[in-house]
Amino acid sequence: MPAPKVIATDLDGTLLGRDGRLPPRNQKALQAARELGVLTVAVTARAPRAVYRIPELAPVLDAAVCCNGAVVYDTANRTAELRHPVPLAAARELHTRLLDALPGALFAVETGERQLTQSVFLQEGVHLNDPWVFLEPADDLIGAADAIAEIVVRVPGSTGEAMYEATRHIDLPGVSLWHWGSFPEIECTAAGATKGAALAAWCAERGIGADEVIAFGDMPNDVSMLAWAGRSYAVAGAHPEAVAAATDRTGPAVEGGVAQIVEAVLGLA
């Protein structure tokens, strides 16, 4: 296989281990790729702060597309650009419709720099997502943000699939809804904020086409990226939607599934 110009990879469940850290084999493979002139990009649902606070990631990344495509983060300068904010009017209408569809739902607003919420439950199972701003139940959650990168929704005891099924009838121009499989959360971004579109734009700015990109992922929010890249790999155990979108398969994240392909393609094995 010809060497790519870009390696794009999801983080959680794909590049990172179960402990949220970068396994040494994946770290070594991406570092070797960069030394050969290949650009490496993390494409993640995480906010920028949840990328730069993993110290071993910064040396092996040229950039990170964050918040499911809403934010582009320069890892060298630690600067972030919110390219696709959720329109405020759409955010308010979506909040109302989600409350109707998901009784008991809890909400947070991600700005790209912080999260605003009215419930401490949103902190559970989420790593490196501070700073948090806690509002009173009667406060205007949507209006409290200067700009909205994502709306995060959780229903205690539910699953992402169940929440998505309960909300898929919501057809609101300007927004898209994503789920993480069994993880009890859905995320809502601007319609133009998808991993695939954001990665395509980042590559186009550098004169790089889809056929020069290898992508890795494991969840439904990776589908647009896996479908766009010329070669794409779903890691072992990936969600069926990710498997269907990818051109190929690789090993599990914990066994260096990303590194397995990078080593083979770049002749590092």
Rank of each mutant, 00 (worst) to 15 (best):
A90M: 04
A197Y: 01
E255P: 05
R249W: 00
L88D: 10
A147T: 10
L266N: 08
V262R: 01
A234G: 03
A42M: 07
E255C: 05
R34Q: 11
S158L: 09
Y233N: 04
S182D: 12
P137E: 15
A64G: 12
Q118E: 09
A190S: 11
N77I: 07
V155C: 12
E187G: 09
I148Y: 08
C67G: 03
A70L: 03
R83Q: 04
G257E: 01
A47D: 14
T75M: 06
A242R: 13
T96A: 10
I261E: 12
A200M: 01
D139G: 08
G181M: 12
A234Q: 05
G17A: 04
R78A: 14
L268Q: 08
G267N: 14
L106N: 03
R154L: 03
G251D: 08
V65I: 04
A190D: 02
G196L: 11
G174T: 06
S224Q: 05
L39A: 01
D62V: 06
I170R: 02
Q31K: 13
A227I: 00
T9I: 05
V43S: 08
G20K: 11
A204D: 14
V60T: 12
A245C: 03
I142Y: 10
W180V: 09
P184S: 13
P55V: 03
P240V: 02
L102T: 06
I7H: 08
A197S: 01
D140P: 15
A198R: 12
F107A: 04
S119P: 03
D19L: 06
W180A: 10
A144D: 07
V6I: 04
V258S: 01
A201L: 13
G37P: 15
E150V: 12
G267C: 13
L88G: 05
A234P: 00
V262T: 07
D211L: 02
S158R: 03
L88R: 15
